[in-house]
Amino acid sequence: METKEALFEYVLRIGDDSLILGHRVSEWCGHGPILEEDIALTNIALDLIGQATNLLDYAGQLEGKGRDGDALAFLRYDREYKNLLLVEQTNGDFGKTILRQFLFDAYRTLLLTRLSKSTDEQLSAIAVKSLKETKYHLKHSSEWVIRLGDGTEDSHSRIQSSLDALWKYTDEIFFANEVDALLEKEGIIPSMEGIKNEWTFFVSDIFAEAGLVIPTNNWKQEGGRTGRHTEHLGYLLAELQYMQRAYPDMKW
């Protein structure tokens, strides 16, 4: 495998994470539990979609087959998406959305911090830009995890059951195969091992403060990075791609 091909695959993965999570979070628009959170979630969704645009446009350039970010976002089939299973999970209640966001933001902040120093100029530029936004997201989601975990009996038990439900998707965050090995050797991406240690330390700390318990059941599910998804992605794509499928090449 050539470097360029590996980098295409890698940028697609993290671009799809942004796209799919951005779409999920955007489903809250007009449905937030309070006005401030409606606005916050919509802003976070917008940042993620913006990051997805930068990443997928770059992936298209690397691929060199004339596909731009829009073509990659709207015209692929579910098996061709490489996002984490975590980000395609349904919103559930506000606590589940926040918990999913927290698990992702904690990882993404660590990743972007390292990618800022990537030897690949464009990837580094995108990371520097995205990191500034992602730090705000992490601050927001961390505060809410503590507030809900350490809140009422109801908020505590609900966010704990979301943690129980989502924990099995967290191993996949640190997925790495030959693509990663090649890019890591060239200094383009960081080692996942280092990120995993720091992530584990960080989220354990926040969960302790929130009074939440990490599930001891170690069964883990993965597949997103290789295109094998949970049933939820298909429904999400049906909505995301509807206009382009119904009216190909439409513009407005």
Partner: peptide
């Protein structure tokens, strides 16, 4: 501060 996020991406409330 009411919210870290405001009427547009660049503003807080």
């Amino acid at each position: 501060m009411i919210s870290q996020f405001g009427s547009t991406a660049c503003k807080a409330h």
